[in-house]
Simulated assay, not measured.
Amino acid sequence: MSQGRRLSLIEAGTNVVVGYLLALATQLAVFPAVGVSVTLLDNLRISTAFVAVSLVRSYLLRRIFNRLGTPQHAGEDR
């Protein structure tokens, strides 16, 4: 069963929002604990960078695994 485009868009959007909030919350908790002091604006910028890298990584891995799962590659690892 494949996922439709609308649901894929909703999943991707949710993933980005949750990733951004998680990155920001983690920084707000961890940075002071290890003595890193940055402004809220800097935290927002840093978490945006983390989420952008995560989004690219997630997309590339999904494409790789989709390619590995195509019929031309199916059964190669069996």
Rank of each mutant, 00 (worst) to 15 (best):
L7A: 07
L40D: 07
I10V: 13
V17Q: 03
L7Y: 07
L68H: 10
Q72F: 11
N43G: 05
F31V: 03
T70R: 05
V56N: 01
A49M: 10
S8L: 12
R67Y: 14
P32S: 00
L61V: 15
H73P: 15
G4W: 00
Q27L: 10
V53P: 12
A23I: 00
V30I: 07
R78N: 04
L21D: 01
R62D: 13
Q27F: 12
S54K: 02
L22D: 07
V53R: 06
S47G: 03
A52V: 11
E76F: 01
R62N: 11
L68E: 12
S58G: 15
M1H: 06
L61M: 11
I10A: 09
L21P: 03
S2V: 10
A25N: 02
L68F: 14
V16C: 08
A33R: 07
I10P: 04
V36A: 09
S58F: 08
R45D: 04
T48M: 11
R67P: 00
R63A: 15
V16Q: 06
T39Q: 08
A12L: 10
P71S: 09
T48H: 12
D77Q: 08
L9H: 04
L22G: 11
N43I: 01
N66Q: 12
N15K: 01
P32E: 00
L55V: 13
Y59C: 06
P71A: 13
G75S: 02
R78V: 09
N15E: 14
N66I: 15
R6A: 12
T48V: 05
T70M: 07
T26H: 08
S37T: 10
P71F: 14
G69R: 13
S47L: 00
F50S: 02
V34W: 00
S8W: 02
S8A: 11
R5T: 03
S58W: 09
T14P: 14
G69F: 14
D77G: 06
N66R: 12
Y59W: 03
G4M: 03
A23C: 05
R6Y: 08
S8H: 06
G69P: 02
I10L: 15
V17H: 01
R67N: 12
V38Y: 10
S47R: 00
L68W: 09
F50G: 05
V17C: 04
G75H: 07
L41V: 02
L21K: 03
T70F: 15
V34A: 00
A25G: 04
L60F: 13
L22C: 12
R57P: 05
G13K: 07
A49P: 12
P71G: 10
S2D: 05
I46Y: 15
